[in-house]
């Protein structure tokens, strides 16, 4: 599974400034935190889907990522739903009762909203990561005013992340060839100990590389001066300004909607 790879392309999203993409993401996160109303959450969900489809990422390449993500969201949404249906609020509209679950209109509405929220942010984040050239993370963060050391740390982390996911898969295959089983034991201790053959090799390899990388960077005078320039130069274009303006207007509208406080939507 190649989890988060950059796909080269020339669509609208590929050409968009990374800072504008960050603003779009922050907008999705704001909506996720602020709303519980299905009718409102459908809008960012649709927007995220449109963004993803407009990026024209080959589905075959990211199938594994989506399968994993949807599975995770369904599990989390299901657990959330169990809670919602096990403890219904007072004067809720009851549809049916099974065992200790009480299916209510409010419960269905809130559970759908929770899943749609997670899906919207997940789709938006993955789309942004898949369409942003990894070599642009550092320069764009530095342009936002973050000190270059911080920007470089994030740049480096995003560069290593897919590599470590690959390392984990390689280690898993190598251990399975030696008779390792992914199924955990019966109790929690067995489950934990079972993960050690996976975590330790990947972590130790990574930790041993720290000094080599640091030496290589210091040989290139990293950290010698207060300022450092970047090879890639990022310029805000007219389309970027248009996108930022659109997002800000949308944000204002959603803040206004939040002030009205819709809460959970109950169809009557």
């Amino acid at each position: 599974m190649i989890y988060l790879r950059y796909f080269r392309g020339s669509t609208f999203l590929h050409r968009l400034d990374p800072r504008a993409k960050l603003l779009i993401l922050l907008f999705f996160i704001f909506v996720e935190i602020a709303f519980r109303d299905v009718r409102i959450i459908v809008i960012p969900f649709a927007a995220a889907l449109i963004l993803y489809l407009s990026a024209r990422i080959p589905f075959r390449e990211v199938k594994g990522t989506w399968r994993f993500m949807v599975l995770l969201i369904v599990i989390i949404g299901g657990i959330n739903g169990v809670f919602l249906f096990a403890f219904p609020g007072a004067n809720a509209h009851v549809i049916a009762r099974y065992w200790f679950f009480t299916v209510t209109v409010e419960g269905i509405s809130a559970a759908t909203a929770a899943i749609l929220k997670l899906l919207a942010v997940a789709i938006a984040t993955v789309t942004m990561v898949l369409t942003t050239d990894p070599s642009l993370y550092g320069p764009s963060l530095a342009k936002l005013g973050i000190p270059y050391k911080g920007a470089y740390v994030f740049d480096l982390a995003m560069r290593y992340l897919p590599a470590y996911v690959n390392d984990l898969e390689t280690t898993l295959n190598a251990q399975m060839a030696r008779g390792y089983r992914t199924k955990g034991g019966k109790n929690i201790f067995a489950t934990i100990i079972n993960t050690i053959p996976l975590i330790i090799p990947v972590s130790i390899n990574a930790m041993l590389s720290v000094y080599e990388v640091a030496d290589a960077m210091e040989l290139r005078a990293f950290g010698a001066k207060k300022q450092r320039t970047w090879f890639r130069i990022i310029v805000f274009k007219q389309t970027d300004y248009a996108v930022v303006a659109t997002v800000l207007v949308a944000l204002a509208v959603f803040v206004y909607l939040r002030v009205l406080d819709p809460g959970i939507w109950v169809p009557t």
Binding site: K149, D155, L161, M207
Partner: peptide
């Protein structure tokens, strides 16, 4: 800094 980046990733 490198240790931080490696730790995050």
């Amino acid at each position: 800094l490198v240790a931080t980046a490696v730790g995050i990733a």
